[in-house]
């Protein structure tokens, strides 16, 4: 494992910790998109089916379990926790995610490396992850007062994707036969989705202003 990959995974882990802490400490999930969290739950469930079929490393298994568990915890809080669920921006979080799920699934049926259930679901998770942040970005645009932690959450998630690209470049140069075109293209699309957010995040940070995204 190279430094970019490890740093990327750590960013991903931190992003989730930040979100858990924010919701738990403030007893509020204001500004957090339940739709994005549910999309991530679908992504993780479909991708980590190999937990049952293959063992890669203790690190790998632990991280997968953390991602699954934390995402379901957040969803549970937002849907059922008696204090937190009241703070959910239901009226603002209206992104119709079926318009993401269906095309990604159809694309995975057509464009995959092997037409088997496991492989199609895995490919579907790759495509879906690329766009899963969209409901969250739309919700941030609609939120006038983005709190720091929610902004940091999205920034950390974006950093994780950017670091994965560096990881792929590094692996491509150091490992023979290391190629995964579908993952690379989806990953680049996913990172592009964040560019606009990055621009406003860094600008607000440099100017010492509160983060807000233009509608």
């Amino acid at each position: 494992m190279n430094i970019f990959r490890l740093a990327g995974d750590m960013m991903h882990l931190f992003s989730i910790i930040v979100l858990l802490l924010k919701i738990n400490a403030t007893r509020s999930c204001r500004g957090v998109s339940l739709k994005t969290q549910e999309l991530y739950a679908i992504v993780f469930v479909c991708r980590y089916l190999d937990l049952f079929t293959s063992f890669i490393s203790l690190y790998n298994t632990t991280m997968k379990l953390i991602f699954l568990l934390s995402t379901f915890t957040i969803i549970y809080w937002m849907r059922f926790h008696k204090v937190i669920r009241v703070t959910y921006d239901r009226e603002q979080d209206t992104f119709r995610y079926q318009f993401l799920i269906l095309p990604c699934f159809l694309l995975a049926l057509v464009l995959n490396n092997e037409f088997s259930a496991m492989e199609v679901l895995w490919t579907f998770s790759i495509y879906l992850e690329a766009v899963a942040i969209l409901p969250q970005l739309v919700l941030l645009q609609r939120t006038n007062n983005i709190d720091n932690l929610t902004g940091n959450y999205v920034f950390l998630l974006g950093s994780y994707r950017a670091l994965y690209i560096l990881n792929w470049i590094y692996r491509f140069m150091t490992e023979p036969n290391y190629r995964q075109y579908l993952v690379w293209i989806s990953g680049i699309v996913q990172t592009i989705v964040y560019i606009d957010f990055f621009y406003y995040y860094i600008r607000s940070w440099r100017n010492n202003e509160k983060l807000s995204l233009p509608a």
């Binding site: 990959r5 293959s54 790998n60 991280m63 290391y178 579908l182 993952v183």
Partner: peptide, 10 residues
């Protein structure tokens, strides 16, 4: 095509 062994990323 991709090799199955490559699925070591998260």
């Amino acid at each position: 095509p991709e090799v199955k062994l490559l699925k070591d990323e998260l």
